[in-house]
């Protein structure tokens, strides 16, 4: 979870916190973009990344399992189990892929994603 005090932020209301399963993800529609939003209850953290897995261009990251590898939070794409850091978006299974990540904040049980 990160709250950037940047002047150029654009907080987009995604959904209620209760809409997202514990330790799981959902997909948020923002215009033509698809954003994967994760409720990492076990760590008390929220993360957002692009929903498209760069390996086979599938809209599926939000349906992936989340977890950690030596304390780095990660998500595994359901198609071929490529794993990505939820913090940096970097691929952790040895490929040269990168997910876009977004800051997330929670206010009064509402989830906002910075889509600047």
């Amino acid at each position: 979870m990160s709250e950037l005090k940047s002047t150029k932020v654009n907080w987009f209301y995604a959904c209620e916190a209760s809409d997202v399963p514990e330790n799981g993800g959902v997909c948020v529609k923002h215009g033509d973009d698809q954003i994967a939003l994760f409720n990492f209850t076990r760590r008390g953290e929220w993360y957002a990344t692009q929903n498209m897995c760069p390996h086979r261009q599938q809209m599926a990251i939000s349906r992936g399992m989340i977890g950690s590898q030596e304390d780095e939070p990660k998500v595994a794409c359901p198609f071929h189990k490529k794993t990505f850091s939820l913090k940096s978006g970097a691929c952790m299974s040895g490929d040269d892929y990168q997910l876009k990540t977004y800051p997330v904040k929670i206010e009064d049980g509402k989830i906002f994603i910075d889509v600047k």
């Binding site: 076990r42 989340i66 939070p73 595994a76």
Partner: peptide, 19 residues
Amino acid sequence: YDEVLTAHGKGDGCEVCKP
């Protein structure tokens, strides 16, 4: 899963141990 992880594991789990 969380009960098992808390009782017998460490960290936050992953796509191998969860299933």
